[in-house]
Design a protein around this nucleic acid. Structure first.
Lengths: 231, 231
DNA sequence: CCGTATTTGTCCGTATGTATG
DNA sequence: ACATACATACGGACAAATACG
């Protein structure tokens, strides 16, 4: 679906919101990379709207931490340093801790969710070495956990941080092709799921902690590779 | 300092940013109360700027969770239900947990900060029964803790949640005048400070947990009083 | 260092949608 | 139900700042 089509069909949302969604997708899936400028005129022509709604969408993006605005210079997709990414990750871990703490208290909700389907599907993708597909499903898995927590603020805050971290991955040219880490990742997810279904918070946290530490470590490695690439 | 003066002096910031700051203050200190409409024309005249920058500031406020935008109807200061406030509080507690966990690892930073001055000042205000002043200092105390953590994302996320909770307090006409709870609150802060200075994370968390639970409880009571008032 | 092209910043006019009598 | 008043939504024009030759 093109943006123009979206524009015609969904009259329920305001233009700034539609533009925001479009730009957010472009940033999230890497069509717009960290450091790229977002020019009002260009986007205005591409999306077929005037500059007003574009500028309003920029303010939302800035507040979301996806772009930085430099007065009289323009807006650019946000770049994230390793230390920033690490700081974000630290907060993310605290949120995931809370998430699984809450989920361990309601195993039946976990069991009746679509988590299991997501899990088996991502295992299938991993077996087929479908890196991109598996990675996307893994993100969905974590997001579904946040959603099942039943705390809207928790979900929103979590999503925000994950979006910022996705930015960092794109910046580092990250298309992780490590079969071993992919397999371990989905195995972690399954173990986490099992612990949640039986309502064991300590076990769940142990697994998640290891899982996230590994992910954090991969982030650091990614960054060092990126640094080398730039020299 | 009036807004017009601010407008002239600070040419470093764009108008939308200045408007955003102004509106944020007005909401935070209760000049604009939850449910109040923010009309483009009115604000445009009051602040002496055109409607464009106003609309851009609205998008930032919406993303911050301080207003809700209804298409073709207007923007209103956000109202927060008890369950929403409780959800926000839950996330806030998780963040404060992380904050003191980090601070307990660097007692010298805590000791060399201005926390102690803040603490004694708020104790003085409490002794004088200066509720408003003491409450403001208490907020500053918590915010300072977040800042000392050294994690920018942690600070920003914390501030966002506290701003939303302030909204809830205004909605509930909250000017807590309970001498006893005020005294206990500052006593908790002192105890927390002591635990952090000696680097005892468990003790610090015990104190903070009790402190926050009490605060959360007061929020609930506030709400029930508000409900009665509306009948 | 200056002039020009480009981009952002701001303002205002018109269209459209909503509430109210 | 309809007309009127009023608010927002969007687009376009002009001013100001910046980047570049």
């Amino acid at each position: 679906m093109t943006f123009a089509a979206t524009l015609d069909l969904l009259k329920k949302q305001s233009l700034p919101t539609l533009v925001l969604d479009e730009l957010e997708h472009m940033i999230r899936d890497g069509r717009l990379r960290p450091g790229d400028p977002l020019r009002e005129n260009t986007l205005s022509e591409q999306l077929g709207v005037s500059r007003g709604p574009i500028r309003e969408a920029f303010r939302s993006l800035a507040e979301k931490g996806l772009v930085r605005v430099e007065k009289n210079r323009g807006v650019f997709v946000r770049t994230i340093s390793l230390s920033e990414a690490d700081a974000i990750f630290e907060v993310r871990m605290a949120l995931e801790h809370l998430i699984i703490e809450k989920l361990a208290e309601m195993p039946s909700r976990v069991q009746h969710s679509t988590l299991y389907a997501l899990l088996t599907e991502s295992e299938a993708r991993a077996a087929q070495s479908d890196y991109a597909g598996c990675h996307a499903l893994n993100l969905e898995f974590h997001e579904m956990l946040a959603q099942l927590s039943g705390n809207a603020t928790l979900l929103e805050t979590y999503q925000r941080l994950v979006n910022e971290l996705a930015l960092f991955r794109h910046q580092a040219h990250a298309a992780s092709r490590n079969t071993e880490s992919l397999r371990r990742s989905v195995a972690d997810h399954r173990a986490l799921y099992e612990a949640l279904v039986v309502g064991d918070p300590d076990q769940a946290w142990r697994i998640l902690q290891g899982h996230l530490q590994a992910s954090r470590q991969r982030l650091r490695i990614l960054f060092s590779e990126e640094s080398v690439r730039l020299t």
